[in-house]
Design a protein around this nucleic acid. Structure first.
Lengths: 243, 243
DNA sequence: TAAAATAGTGTACATTAAACACTATTTTAG
DNA sequence: CTAAAATAGTGTTTAATGTACACTATTTTA
């Protein structure tokens, strides 16, 4: 929906008898212990100069999820990631050019992943910390972002989604940090250790990482649990704002 | 998506450069203590004679939810109901005529509501108990139904959605019955009484209903809780199959 | 060598869940 | 008329889980 060639002057609504369908992908990552989201800056009317969720039209021969993965790869060079459908936004006036229906997806990427090539400042693509988003957000994308964050929070509590943001080896306190970032609240260290270990999701390794204090043990996420690639892990009770 | 005029012979894919967008509404109700879903029988190719989730194309001047409500009203004559977006289905081959993207909604209606006019056997519209659906289900609608039921189950646990299926006055054991129908498992009477009362969602009335045994007290759903029209009520723990 | 920094464990108390036995009030069968 | 059946509703006990927080452990830094 961001790459029509028309302007306010050339736009002609009567050409369209069907809505356009786009896929927008809200891409999250963790940069320097903070949750960030990827936005692209618009170069044309409408919302010129504003920041938008990356997305584009679907091709006739690809599924919605395929379209979302293609978008993601175009923007970040990353493939094979956690991705889920968020919601479909279809209010009438959300794009001034024409009727646009956007199927929104959420994706989680590791910032340290191989090719993550965006985010040099010269480009029109940038990572924003979710605690300090720009105010210049195009279309209804602010609403989509808010909903994406809320969904992320609620799914965090009963899925293994947090692991998607971590490298292969990580410490338990790093994992706790991700939970805190996304939930935006402090968790108890002792209780976190206990719960995460009882859940049986982690595999101890012999690797340690040294830092300023006592070195920390590194763990790996167990993938071999008889095929359920994403079984339930409930960190805490419902918070009521579940998506 | 059910009302194109073409057949296999007349269909010409090249006319279409954009996907069609439909809204499909999975309508649930409780009939004689059993959960039912509304399906319509197709009269034309493809899937002639098969049963489908009611739905249709969106108009250019209505939002997705407005389209869903219009569909619902056309099928059942009912307005102003609980309705929520389920998922958007957009695989390439799901409709043999053309590329169709369906935004699916869930609706809950009270069977005893004013006009609920469908379901005379002569018509091509029928309520099916979810425990005994027909096997002749069109398109990918079986998958949509399965997903709708799964979503219904999981949301039941943390929303007040069950009340949508009850008349204004109801007994606590009737409410329990709805939970049992949707969750497909027995609940403990004593624990249900305790939890539902502690939740503070219900308002006692002076009305009683007489039956075969001891008469039962009738309750009303409290609507006045400072604006949150659908705040959280968690009946029990996560079951892992949450939508 | 002590303090600071980080990692990790243990324990006690409160809250909630689960099972199930019990009491209460009506209709129905004899 | 009375006992049984049917339905409604309460209470109690135990187990499981959540929460708070104190404690120990191991490293670097001053």
């Amino acid at each position: 929906m961001e790459d029509h060639e028309e302007t306010a002057a050339t736009y002609d609504a009567s050409r369209y008898d069907r809505p356009s369908v786009t896929v927008d992908v809200v891409i999250f990552t963790l940069i320097e212990r903070e949750l960030h989201v990827l936005l692209v800056q618009r170069k044309r009317w409408p919302y010129e100069g504003f920041w938008a969720i990356p997305g584009g039209f679907i091709n006739m021969d690809e599924s919605l999820e395929q379209a979302a993965r293609r978008e993601l790869e175009e923007e970040t060079g990353v493939r094979d990631l956690y991705m889920e459908q968020l919601f479909t936004f279809g209010d009438v006036g959300r794009d001034p050019r024409t009727r646009v229906i956007s199927v929104a997806y959420i994706a989680l990427v590791r910032f340290d992943a191989q090719h993550l090539r965006v985010s040099d400042e010269s480009h029109d693509v940038r990572w924003f910390p979710i605690s300090a988003l720009t105010r210049d957000i195009a279309f209804d994308h602010e609403q989509i972002l808010a909903y994406a964050i809320s969904r992320l929070r609620s799914k965090l509590e009963y899925t293994t989604l947090a692991f998607q943001l971590l490298p292969e080896l990580f410490s338990i306190l790093e994992l706790k940090h991700i939970y805190e970032q996304i939930l935006d609240e402090k968790l108890d260290k002792g209780n976190f250790y206990r719960k995460i270990k009882e859940a049986g999701l982690l595999e101890e390794t012999t690797h340690m990482r040294e830092g300023r204090g006592r070195p920390t043990r590194l763990w790996r996420f167990k993938r071999d649990r008889a095929g359920d690639k994403q079984f339930v892990f409930r960190w805490r009770e419902d918070r009521g704002d579940r998506a």
